[in-house]
Amino acid sequence: MPPELDAVYEVFLQIGGAGRPIQLVGSVRASDERLAWQSAKEIYTRRENCTALWVVPRSALFVGEGIDLELLKEGTGRKFRIPGYPSAHRRDRGGVGLMEDL
C-alpha cells in the first residue's frame, strides 16, 4: 500500500480529448487539493494537449495487497472464452457470426 503522506497527491492526465483514459503520470506535494491541482498543471501539463487533470490524495488510493496481483492474472487465462474454442473447425467458420457483426 502507498505510505500515507498527508501532503502528497497522485496526478492523472487525460491527453487528446474526452473519452480517452485518464492516466497516472506522477505526484505532487501540496497542502490542499487546489494547490495540488495548480502544481500538477504547472509541472505535468506544460507541453501536453491535456483535456483533463485529476489529483487524488495518495491516502485515497487502494491498490490491492501483494497477492492480489496474482489474482489479476486470471483475466487472461480463461481460454474457453475465446470464440471457437477449442477446435480449429469452429475458429475457421469463415468469418460467420463474429462479434463485430453484432
Binding site: A30, S31, D32, R34, L35
Partner: peptide, 9 residues
C-alpha cells in the same frame, strides 16, 4: 507559504 497555505493547515 506554499506548504502551509491551504486547508490542511
Amino acid at each position: 507559504v506554499a506548504l502551509s497555505a491551504g486547508k490542511l493547515n
